[in-house]
């Protein structure tokens, strides 16, 4: 098992806000439809997506997701980053495609 601190230390993504560094990451999950993510994202997962809006944060918070990785160069607005910080959700960003970003997390998990 790894934590969001492990992801921070790995330096593979750009850290936008660290949230709670002690949160565990047990799985990596990829999905851009919030409706599906809400129902299927595992608790304590790292969620890789290109959907960067305020509702992404709400889903992450309510579904107990540990961190969000925004892929393909997508970004949150400053207000969303602030909100993520308050909710204790770590946010990372990367230019990598979703699969490649998820694979890097999976390599850390295994």
């Amino acid at each position: 098992m790894i934590t969001t601190q492990t992801l921070i230390d790995a330096g593979i993504f750009t850290l936008k806000t660290q949230g709670d560094p002690a949160k565990s990451i047990k799985k990596v999950f990829c999905c851009d439809l919030l409706s599906i993510a809400m129902g299927k994202a595992p608790a304590e997962s790292a969620w890789v997506t290109v959907m960067g809006n305020r509702n992404t944060l709400a889903v992450a918070s309510l579904a107990d997701i540990s961190c969000i990785v925004l892929a393909e160069g997508t970004a949150f607005q400053d207000a969303e980053i602030e909100c993520a910080s308050q909710e204790g959700i770590a946010v990372f960003a990367t230019e990598l495609p979703i699969f490649d970003a998820a694979l890097k997390i999976q390599e850390l998990l295994s």
């Binding site: 439809l33 599906i36 809006n53």
Partner: peptide, 14 residues
Amino acid sequence: LGFGAGMGLPNMKK
């Protein structure tokens, strides 16, 4: 916005 996939009510039941 990422909603409207027809998963809401099934998720609520689940």
